[in-house]
Amino acid sequence: MTFRELHHRAGPPLLLPNAWDVASALAFAEAGFPAVGTTSFGVAAADGSPDGGRASKAATLALARQLAPLPVYISADIEDGYGDDPHRVAAYAESLGIDGINIEDSSDEKLIAPELHAAKVSAIKHRVPGLFVNARVDTYWLGQQATVVATLERARAYVAAGADGIFVPGATDPADLQALTAGIDAPVNILAHPALTLTDLGTLGVRRVSTGSLPYRAAIDAAVHVASAVRDGRTPPPATPYAEMQQRLLRFTEAIRE
């Protein structure tokens, strides 16, 4: 299946795990996930920067180019496109050389005019027609205009501009999700939620579920747990053997050379 077809196939929604470096992306790929995304929070944090503020631009570009050879589809979180000019945003999206992007309609924790975001989406699709553009609506995420009506208005403008999917992080109420999926003529993506299984979300019409920064944050917690266990005389949890992870990286580097 193509990346686009994964969003329209029968069954539960596409689960997109979000990586923050090559090693995490390799692990997701070897676990059988057909597509892997990046997380702007994880990428920025691993680089020593807070999320947002367009801090992850260079690191995201570098990571996307590293991951492009993987035998899975790759989608990158590019914040707001790292700029206000639609044509420069489109040029950046093209330079990634991957299968999809998320691009959000907020900057500096504030919603931007939907017309500007629609112009970015349109410019990207004009320049890179085959790129899956997942237009993010941050109404619920930021608690600004967080209503079904306002969210649908923005989402429909982005679909009209050419968006292939709509991402509504922060939306969790089943009634809202059902109204959003029914009112948007494109696959709807949300963040994973502990109270809603993939089957539940599929029933509500959701077609893609992202893990966001959860794996990165959980990995940091796990690392502290391991170190604390050793310090406190407890048995640390099991981990993938060094040799196995080393071989994974060797296969990756060999594939790049070919």
Rank of each mutant, 00 (worst) to 15 (best):
Y242N: 00
P236W: 12
T39E: 04
G42A: 10
P241A: 12
T39N: 04
I101T: 11
D77F: 01
H225R: 15
Q66M: 06
R4I: 00
L96V: 15
A58P: 00
D221A: 15
I103R: 00
S24I: 12
F28A: 06
G170I: 11
A223V: 13
T253G: 00
V230R: 15
D185C: 06
S107I: 07
V22N: 10
L63I: 09
L26T: 09
F28V: 04
P236A: 15
A239L: 15
P71C: 07
G100F: 01
E258M: 09
F3D: 07
R4F: 00
A155L: 11
L152V: 00
D51C: 06
R234N: 14
D108L: 13
H117A: 07
G183W: 04
G143K: 05
G212R: 09
P194A: 10
R156G: 01
A222G: 04
G97I: 09
T240V: 15
H8K: 13
Y216T: 11
A255Y: 02
R154P: 03
E104V: 09
L152Q: 00
S56Y: 01
H225N: 14
L250V: 11
H193L: 12
V168W: 01
P236G: 12
R136I: 10
L196I: 11
A186I: 08
A155S: 11
V224W: 15
W141N: 00
R156I: 01
I103P: 01
V22H: 08
R248H: 07
G205A: 13
T2Q: 08
A46S: 14
S95N: 06
G162R: 02
A227C: 11
A93L: 09
T211F: 05
V128H: 03
P238A: 13
A163H: 09
L14R: 03
P194I: 03
P71N: 13
T2C: 10
I166V: 15
A192I: 05
A23I: 14
H193E: 15
V168D: 02
A222F: 08
T151Q: 08
A179D: 06
E254G: 07
V188A: 10
A90P: 13
T235Q: 10
L152I: 03
G42H: 04
W20T: 05
P13E: 05
L67M: 08
G202Q: 12
P114C: 08
N134H: 14
V226P: 02
A161C: 13
D164E: 06
A192P: 00
L191C: 07
V168E: 01
Q144I: 14
R136F: 12
E258F: 06
P238G: 09
A91D: 13
